[in-house]
């Protein structure tokens, strides 16, 4: 091995160990600080050096050019790094300065139902910028796993849970008695009718609640309502505390992209199913509510550099599998299934 090749290999080894060490350090910083650290100037120098090292390696080692799998996996690493640089915030800033391409790297778009919005709050910039099109939210909804669960705690630290279904009972034992779920409300309302409070389910809104009775030995059954979104009030003498919980199965925003008054794209976005349009991905990030009602919070992310990164992934995975698995498998088949031709006249 020539001196240059040996030096390149040592440099690669040092670069790999350095990045592994920095990754471990970054893990202790937390995601936000780690991101800032890996985008800082010394690390930008490192990324450029890593690309240069990979490219020099490909040019210098004939084996890397001769063995397609090795070439593929090393080229894949270069593509991933280039794509990541192209899609980074400094990459966006550089493109704006050099080519005048002005894209929002990442931001947040808050939108009420039946409203249209094109203003994006840019991440980490205290700046509001406009998209070249509008986003309309037709409907936002949350879907839950059914049934929910009723959690019960006693004052002496014991706890129970039961499915939140009408007709379910749970014997807590001893003087705590039995808990029974009588009714499940999607939108709980209560009115006075003939001086009696009457609870009922009103269609349309959302105020999930349970009607629960507690039957203690030696006393009349007590009725109470347990709400999902409100803690309710607990009597200091009450030996039991309760809480109603439903796990969210999905958040869904029905979106339309409007450009020049025309709907040009539409999708019901949910977690793992973003909408892609005009160089941006729209993600269901969160939701909130205020005096004007519920609103959906969308994350807007530029897709710059993504194709290069994905292309790099394909090269990397393809190269690694071909090199370590494919070549071995071929070799195994060749050694185990060699075809032997019969020579005419040879004795049986």
């Amino acid at each position: 091995m020539s001196q240059l090749k040996r030096m390149l290999l040592w440099a690669t080894l040092v670069a790999v160990i350095l990045l592994a060490g920095l990754s471990v350090c970054g893990a202790f910083l937390g995601a936000e600080r780690a991101q800032a650290f890996f985008n800082s100037l010394p690390l930008v120098v490192y990324w450029f050096a890593a690309i240069a090292l990979l490219a020099t390696g490909i040019a210098s080692f004939r084996r890397l050019l001769r063995v397609p799998s090795l070439l593929l996996l090393h080229a894949g690493c270069i593509l991933v790094l280039l794509g990541a640089m192209w899609g980074s915030e400094p990459g966006h800033a550089l493109r704006k300065r050099l080519f005048g391409i002005d894209k929002i790297p990442e931001g947040e778009l808050d939108i009420y139902e039946q409203m249209q919005e094109d203003r994006v709050v840019v991440k980490d910039a205290n700046d509001v910028r406009r998209l070249p099109f509008s986003v309309r939210l037709n409907d936002f909804r949350m879907e839950y796993y059914e049934p929910g669960r009723l959690f019960i705690w006693s004052r002496d630290g014991r706890d129970w849970r039961m499915p939140a279904k009408a007709g379910q009972t749970l014997a807590l034992g001893g003087e705590l008695g039995t808990v029974a779920i009588r009714r499940v409300f999607r939108n709980f309302r209560i009115d006075l009718r003939e001086d009696e409070p009457v609870a009922y389910d009103e269609p349309g809104g959302s105020n999930p609640a349970l009607e629960v009775t507690v039957d203690r030995p030696g006393s009349a059954p007590g009725k109470r309502y347990v709400f999902e979104r409100r803690p309710g009030h607990t009597n200091p003498d009450d030996p039991l505390a309760m809480s109603y919980f439903r796990a969210v199965r999905d958040y869904v925003s029905e979106l339309e992209i409007v450009r020049d008054g025309q709907v040009v794209a539409a999708k019901d976005i949910e977690v793992n199913h973003p909408l892609h349009y005009g160089g941006y991905h729209f993600y269901q990030q969160s939701w909130n509510e205020n005096e004007f009602g519920e609103y959906s919070i969308l994350m807007v992310v530029s897709d710059s550099g993504l194709n290069a990164v994905y292309g790099g992934y394909v090269c990397l995975v393809g190269g690694v599998f071909w090199h370590f698995w494919g070549r071995r498998t071929l070799h195994w088949f060749r050694t185990h299934y060699t075809i032997t031709a019969k020579i005419p006249g040879e004795s049986q």
Partner: peptide
């Protein structure tokens, strides 16, 4: 929304 989030 990110292929790499710098998560621990």
């Amino acid at each position: 929304g990110h292929y790499w989030g710098w998560d621990p």
